[in-house]
């Protein structure tokens, strides 16, 4: 029972306190790139959840079953990039064949996150934090949920900004970055929570 609570706290912490975008600043590029509309932001978010959960499992297995026994831990980054890139390709082919509806929804986002730093980041942090397999899965999944939460909130804010007509020099990316900074400040309130 204690273990379940521990996992749930880990997940809550990953979503809010250690939010990938607002606290760790990982995955900023899709955060700014695909956040113009809430629909596409949500699609991107789901794709990240999907890939990050699976890649957490795959990279954990590769690290402890291949890299550690052969003393190659120092090459984890390059190994993980290789694993994640192949995994995303494999998932794409699999979905296209067996779940065309999901492929249609995620299709264009999947290749985009092959080299996403958030996905690689979660794989590396799993190892750094010494998580076991279950914890790695939980951490990968919930930090992706945190990413989705952040990008969808930000997309909502950007829709409002697009109607507001800021001064000319602030239009577009500058005002988006300012808004992102303000949301990050709001999220930093969670860092006071300790479990």
């Amino acid at each position: 029972m204690d273990y379940v609570v521990e996992i749930l706290l880990l997940m809550l912490g990953a979503v809010l306190v250690e939010n990938y975008i607002f606290a760790k600043f990982l995955g900023i590029c899709p955060f700014l790139g695909v956040s113009e509309k809430p629909d596409t932001a949500l699609g991107m978010g789901f794709a990240v959840v999907f890939v990050m959960t699976l890649s957490s499992a795959a990279t954990w297995a590769v690290y402890y079953l291949i890299l550690v026994p052969f003393g190659l831990e120092y090459l984890e980054t390059i190994a993980f990039i290789l694993i994640i890139a192949s995994l995303v390709q494999l998932i794409e082919m699999f979905l296209r064949k067996f779940v065309p509806a999901l492929y249609g929804a995620l299709g264009i986002y999947l290749p985009l996150i092959t080299t996403n730093c958030a996905v690689l980041g979660s794989a590396l942090l799993n190892i750094q934090n010494g998580y076991n397999f279950i914890e790695s899965l939980a951490y990968g999944f919930s930090s992706a949920v945190g990413f989705t939460l952040a990008i969808v909130i930000f997309a909502g804010v950007r829709v409002r900004i697009s109607f507001a007509e800021p001064p000319k020099s602030f239009r577009g990316t500058p005002i988006a970055l300012i808004a992102a900074g303000l949301i990050a400040m709001a999220f930093s309130g969670f860092s006071g929570m300790s479990f």
Binding site: V62, A79, L82, I83, S86, L90, M93, R96, K97, F98
Partner: peptide, 27 residues
């Protein structure tokens, strides 16, 4: 050499896996 060998094996395995998958999941 040891590291290079292992990565050649890992990369080769991934490559073969994807090549097989491309045939199996061919649409």
């Amino acid at each position: 050499l040891y590291a290079a060998m292992w990565f050649a094996i890992l990369g080769g395995a991934m490559g073969i896996l994807l090549a097989v998958a491309a045939k199996v999941f061919y649409v």
